[in-house]
Design a protein around this nucleic acid. Structure first.
Lengths: 160, 160
DNA sequence: TATTGTTATACTCTATAACTATA
DNA sequence: TATAGTTATAGAGTATAACAATA
């Protein structure tokens, strides 16, 4: 489905509605970039965004994370974390260790192979992002970054 | 899954990587807003974003659209348009008319009920958006709007 | 009783491919 | 041959709920 002529932004029929126009454009850009990332992760590494995100969390936490910590951080329910972890474990990228203090719990960690593999993917991933955002100058990036920070605060306040 | 402490932005571990940070923040904000919209469409109107988007296209085209036109505009494959149209037709919101010149084709149109229902949803939807973006001044909205237009051009050029 | 993790199930959204009727 | 639409199927990605083991 590449090279389409239309997209979500064409939903709008009239010229007012500033917030709505802005939202449709924001959604359109973000979706387009996300689709690119998903396609490239699949084509180049045979993986998916949720799997990549789980590995990224583990890379930030070399001592590992319990399943429920992963669930909170990835904002998905526990059953999903079990499924993704099963896949990554089968690929030898992560392992479950018993929790020393709580026998209900597991600590999930990157294997050495998982760390190597993630680092390789992360570097490529960052290069894709840099390329996709090359349409903005560093100053413009900073500007949007700050505006988004402000918006995020508002979203947090309004939608608990 | 409301009231989470973490989100995608926490994926990043260090302070450089301007484009990557920007992307994670953009994705985080957009996802959060989109989740809100999906939840509210379901709770208040028992519908989904793709169904809403299809109705929106039809409202822009009172003479109706062929299935393949809908497919192009919604950027999904034909089988999906058939499915969504079936649902909306079963709910009495759209109807298929025979094409006068091409007996392979249908023209999909809003029913009067569909138009009334869409207008009600669209007004509420816009109010949600206005509220969610209330963290930005009109000038800031304009600014982001223009920056996104620029980014979109770059994306189009780079990812055909 | 509450919590951690697993299992089972289901739903939405999407794509691909085979099929039909028509052009 | 090519196109419009349908059908069937598959696979992400997600949620809910019942469950076992442990706290």
């Amino acid at each position: 489905m590449s090279g389409m002529e239309f997209d979500l932004e064409s939903r709008l029929s009239d010229d007012d509605h500033q917030a709505l126009k802005l939202w449709l454009r924001l959604l359109s850009c973000t979706t387009r970039i996300e689709d690119q990332i998903r396609q490239r992760l699949r084509a180049d590494f045979g993986t998916t965004l949720p799997r990549f995100d789980l590995l990224a969390q583990l890379e930030r936490h070399p001592d590992g994370l319990a399943m429920r910590e992963l669930s909170k951080r990835l904002m998905v329910t526990g059953g999903n974390v079990t499924g993704i972890t099963d896949q990554l474990e089968a690929e030898g990228l992560v392992l479950r260790e018993t929790h020393p203090d709580d026998r209900r719990s597991f600590i999930v960690k990157l294997t050495p192979q998982g760390l190597r593999q993630f680092k390789r993917m992360a570097a490529t991933h960052e290069a894709w992002i840099v390329e996709l955002f090359a349409g903005w100058t560093p100053a413009q990036k900073t500007q949007v970054q700050e505006l988004l920070a402000q918006l995020k605060t508002h979203l947090k306040d309004n939608t608990p």
